[in-house]
Amino acid sequence: MRARLAGFSLERPGTLDEALGMLAASKERLTLLAGGTDLYVYLNAGVARPGRWLDLWGLDELRGIHEVGDHVVLGALTTYTELRASELVRGALPLLAQAAATVGAVAIQNRGTLGGNIANGSPAGDSLPPLLAYDAEIGLRSARGRRFVPFDRFYTGYRASVAAPDELIEQIRIPLGAGSGSRACRFVKVGTRAAQAISKVVAAFVLGRGADGSIDHCRAAFGSVAPTPVRLRRLEQHVIGKRIDPALIRTSSDVLLSEIAPIDDIRSTARYRRFVARTAWQRFMEEIPGH
């Protein structure tokens, strides 16, 4: 480990209230520890920020997958393994279950959490485009109370969010029907290899059509094409009210390319990311039955 642990300490609250109290009382920003699959990479590499860490892993209040009214509510500590195994998630939120299955491999899926993926805020986070495509809301909790933030307004920039220093992610709330059966949907991950891979491009699409075949609902969300995961609103608006045909596929692809700003980095090139983002959308549209 490259970090000098003398500069770090760990608080281990026994309850959520205790944790919120510690957050409220702390003058410095606490580092929130869940499954550790991201934070330990930073710690081992010697790039983690020294200071106090707050261990959320033992807080059972942050676990569980429930149907509450017309929402699916996912505790922030829900692991990828739990997402994959949940009948509710597989049935109502298939893109999220598929995304969970592509994160790392078994040992990482057993420890990595949905809340951690959101909080870490990597633009390549695999679960994030599905959350955008499903109109998820992030339930933030502090000693001051609870508030919900639409996920597409959660990030304010590269790895920066609206969460205040005394807030933690308590839950993720997703309206039921966001991925309902009549809608076409697809999760696409293009990673560095077939498993245990970071995304070069990750995308989630949901598309609904009315009785006349015209598109009445569209979500197109991408990761790794901008500093944060993004919904392509211009693309979504462009297709609303239209029917799928080769012309729409062409024009919408152009809109898509105008709306993303991928970069060259050590995992891929901007050019490749643009290519893959476009073909992912194109192929999704082409393969919608009966278009």
């Binding site: 491999a105 560095t192 290899r193 077939a194 498993a195 245990q196 891979a197 970071i198 050590i266 995992r267």
Partner: peptide, 9 residues
């Protein structure tokens, strides 16, 4: 980031 093949590759 240095990508060697896994079982799945």
């Amino acid at each position: 980031n240095y990508i060697i093949p896994t079982f799945a590759d």
